[in-house]
Design a binder for these strands. Structure first.
Lengths: 183, 183
DNA sequence: TGAGTTATGGACCCTTCGGTACAAAACCAT
DNA sequence: ATGGTTTTGTACCGAAGGGTCCATAACTCA
């Protein structure tokens, strides 16, 4: 997973993957029919090991304020970058790359990003500021959040300064915390 | 440019580029020393033909309200997708891909994205809602906007539904139009 | 322990990659 | 026209890509 995460789908070469997995071609092609199938399997693994925890965080009732959950998630992302991890998000990178030329991969990626987006919606519903707002608005905000999240992850991959990422994240939080005008 | 735009830096093959340019290898390597140099030249061209008009739009005093300029820009992006153009943004795709492993390319990309970001800042400064706010806040919002823009462009490349993109764009506009609490 | 099965290594296949070399063609000034 | 220069097309290069094949090694169970 790490190799795909670091290098992206297309760029991850078989030799690199094999070294990362500590096996050889024979075993890989015995277990997975080809590179694409391997990647789809990895996407499932990523969903379990990265997406689901993130969604769990966004849905965690132990943090009553949904906005705070979102803040925690974004903080995690920023913290990762601070520690030198510039891999970004496997899904976001796949969405950007030629991976999304393939219908199966594009579908799997969209599915996982959809889960994240619904996670944001759940968190918003648990926010005092947004709980009482119309469903449509929360839906739109969760769309904006998944977009923001994707942008953040992509810019993390490029060499954007940590300050940009931090300001960007705190700005979106500030905006979402501002109570909407009555009406 | 279109070939790189559609396929990304790494994925764009020499034969594809040659066909797109209507020339053959001999001429290409006469004019540009290699693929990377060609791409850097293309990035300059993209900056002139795509980034600068966008920045001009964001700075256009004929539209007095800066927020409206931003809305126009996002509308353009959405409109492009509506017309079936899923190429996204050359810079954003390059930022996501292995292109940003190369320091020169990463630098050029960051430079151009920086121009966009400053464009957003200029537009915000021309908005009644934000003109009187602290510089630091506008700066942070412009960071959030370039992040949002990147996310939008990446999701446009993947097969995200047009509705997500539309809601995402209008949500961020709505948030930015909400006057901040006094203080 | 030994027959039967499965997993593994790695040589090998073809294609495509970016890049070079160079002869033929096109252009140019005289 | 003609000699010299520049531009163009294309054959070719080594490297690396993903994928196949098969002999050997490693397991399994009687």
């Amino acid at each position: 997973m790490d190799v795909f995460w670091r290098e992206g789908y297309q760029e991850a070469s078989l030799p690199a993957l094999l070294e990362g997995m500590g096996i050889t071609r024979g075993s890989l092609y015995k277990a997975f029919s080809d590179k694409k199938t391997l990647f789809l399997t990895i996407l499932e693994h990523y969903e379990k090991s990265a997406v689901e925890p993130a969604v769990a965080l966004l849905s965690d009732p132990e943090t009553p304020d949904g906005m705070q959950r979102i803040e925690m998630l974004l903080d995690k992302v920023i913290e990762q970058v601070k520690q030198g991890d510039r891999r970004g998000c496997l899904l976001c990178t796949a969405a950007a790359g030629a991976a999304s030329d393939d219908a199966d991969i594009a579908h799997a990626v969209a599915e996982s990003l959809g889960k994240m987006q619904r996670g944001f919606a759940v968190a918003l519903a648990a926010s005092p500021v947004h709980a009482t707002r119309p469903d449509a608005e929360r839906h739109a905000f969760s769309d904006a959040l998944i977009t923001q999240y994707t942008g953040l992850r992509i810019l993390a991959r490029s060499r954007a300064s940590i300050e940009i990422l931090e300001r960007s994240a705190s700005a979106i939080l500030q905006l979402l915390r501002t109570p909407p005008p009555i009406g």
